[in-house]
Design a protein around this nucleic acid. Structure first.
Lengths: 141, 141
DNA sequence: ATGTCACATTAGATATAATCTAAATTCTTG
DNA sequence: CAAGAATTTAGATTATATCTAATGTGACAT
């Protein structure tokens, strides 16, 4: 996603594309890890423009609220973030061949990782290779 | 689970059944919510024997390490805990952060009848990232 | 162009969550 | 009982997040 696209998605969410805000979302889009707020703060301050800690937190809050960034539930004290919109599964319907994006859910943490796997497996069983439309039609019978 | 059974499971994990430790796990077993450490601390201090904050944290750490208690990964600042033994999934709402239990199905059954409907509904909630309350409110708009 | 006002940023203070420390206490075992 | 190990404790410390109030910035009507 290029600079213009980021700018558009910010403004489409009613957020000004400020240098500090841009730096946060750009960093999240370029890195597939799940950095903490502190790591993001440090990263955007290695380059210009610099950003204060409060601003980094403010912008993370705003971006999460706007749905452009997700706060990932993980083990440990510090919240972790990633950019939405980037990573998703491609789901191809057995029935109609339609391709749907399925939002990517990270396995929350090792302890409950198997739970997440199990939920996903159950969901896959339920949908049985059907897209939302087909699955809904199927379930309503 | 009665007092003796709790005592046995503690000692079976190599942990002394101290009054403070017992109070923590008993509280978690009696309450299906997912309290924070602070809430547990407060709860065990409403009755005798009282427990210090450090001890509450120590005991939670020990119980998690022993596998008797699970630390639930949630968004937000404070860790949350529950007693293992009742097997269920944890679903965390993207919108309000609420933790919902999702019943654990030992054997994935054909998606038919009310069970299938329920699983389907839960899967939809998972994919939408909304808890029951938020999903209802959202849908009604 | 410029005044104005809402939105953003900032440093530092404050709040909140978790852990550490070192001393005292309690349990277990010889 | 004595001794050593495990546990508890109050208070200090660290880590994470938010608040405050002053300042800066940009959009836009005039």
């Amino acid at each position: 996603m290029d600079a213009e696209a980021i700018k558009r998605s910010l403004e489409g969410s009613g957020l000004r594309c400020t240098p500090q805000r841009y730096a946060v979302i750009e960093f999240l889009m370029e890195h597939n890890r799940h950095p903490t707020a502190a790591e993001i703060f440090e990263a955007v301050n290695r380059v210009d423009p610099r950003s204060s800690r409060a601003t980094t937190y403010n912008n993370l809050r705003d971006l999460v609220q706007a749905g452009l960034v997700r706060e990932v539930a993980v083990e440990g004290r510090a919240a972790r973030f990633d950019a939405k919109g980037m990573r998703h599964h491609h789901f191809i319907c057995d029935r109609c061949g339609n391709v749907e994006d399925i939002e990517w859910y990270d396995v929350p943490r090792p302890a409950s990782g198997s739970l997440g796997q199990r939920i996903l497996r159950e969901c896959e069983l339920i949908f049985r290779g059907l897209c939302t439309k087909c699955a809904t039609r199927h379930a309503s019978r």
